[in-house]
Design a protein around this nucleic acid. Structure first.
Lengths: 196, 196
DNA sequence: TAATATATTGATTGGCCATTCAATATATTA
DNA sequence: TAATATATTGAATGGCCAATCAATATATTA
């Protein structure tokens, strides 16, 4: 049990270090040596706990993706109405804890970038996006006629995405507030009967 | 005159090759040697015509940015009304010639990526974005009360951006049509008196 | 304790890359 | 034509990186 525990700890430490370095220096600066030193380990150790650099990065990204989903779920009350669900998605997407800190925001950017070249990360990235959209659809389909669902869902998702990337990495709380407001107004304009 | 001409030609050829390679292989694959071979030249020649790789890439991106602006301007009639201007921006953003071909779409993605690390490209990227937004603002401010301009402009820009990146690199004409429709509906919802 | 597994290190390897450079070819000019 | 500038090549340079490996330390087990 103890051996497993050390292995798990080291892997977590390395994933955290990877996220920190990638966020601060970008993907090109995130070399194995730098990540290892950041985690307080020697260069060679990374390949002892991860099969390859690609595996390390992919797993780090996955943990980021999971954090995001949890943040959103935490914002909605238990057994939420469709409107509350949408509200949590809009608010959660611009929550300070995942866009407010430059590190996290930059990390999302690097996540998308890595998805361009690494097949494994590409898959994870698409999965993350698909879950996000399907979350929106689950709520919208309960609020509008079936033939309007697709366009409304895609519009909401695109609008959130657009703000998400727009100033990527340099958000003030003020910008986030603004993004929330504009996105929510869009939701209200498209879906009659929702308010504030 | 002849010497200048050759220099200009080679530089253009190299910039085209750079765009092609970056679009196909992504930034990591775009080495000097590969770009040179793509342009039918030997490896060493690139540094004869460009100070550095960074300069080559930055100028290639600039030409992409200019092409985009020209595409949009070409879509609007001479002396357009504000509504026609907006329409050209929406249609132009999803015009087949700059998102329909995988190469061009992927190139935009790589443009944004490079902006994360290269200061020169970062500047160019922000400039491109600022011009785009200011283009929208020019039209919107003639159509709605002053205190509504900012939110509407940012909403339109974000929505277009969102679609722009969403499926980046893998657009069907059908997707583009859809994006146009959803964006234009948003414009119409926000700005009374616009139609079609 | 002895034996075995795991953790950790830092040097080494082999590969890739941007850039430089000397050498050669091809124009331009006087 | 001779002299000079420009174009082009391909090999060499020096640096960086992921991954490997032998060596050492530390824990686990019998």
């Amino acid at each position: 049990m103890a051996k497993r525990s050390i292995k798990a700890m080291r892997r977590d430490e390395l994933m955290d270090a990877a996220i920190a370095v990638i966020a601060e220096e970008g993907m090109p600066g995130a070399t194995m040596a730098v990540i290892a030193r950041r985690a307080g380990m020697s260069a060679g150790l990374v390949n002892h706990y991860f099969e390859s650099k690609e595996e390390l990065i992919a797993l780090a990204m996955r943990s980021l993706s999971n954090l995001f989903r949890q943040d959103i779920m935490r914002l909605a009350p238990a057994d939420p109405t469709p409107a509350q669900r949408l509200r949590a998605i809009v608010d959660g997407s611009f929550a300070p804890q995942h866009l407010g800190t430059p590190k996290r925001a930059a990390m999302w950017m690097q996540f998308m970038i890595a998805a361009q070249t690494e097949p494994r990360i590409k898959h994870l990235y698409h999965l993350t996006g698909a879950r996000f959209v399907s979350n929106i659809r689950y709520a919208v389909r309960r609020l509008v006629p079936a033939d309007q669902v697709d366009d409304i869902v895609d519009g909401i998702a695109a609008l959130i995405d657009g703000f998400f990337w727009q100033n990527a990495g340099e958000y003030e709380e003020e910008d986030l507030e603004r993004a929330r407001r504009i996105c929510w107004r869009y939701v209200c304009l498209q879906i009659p009967g929702i308010e504030l």
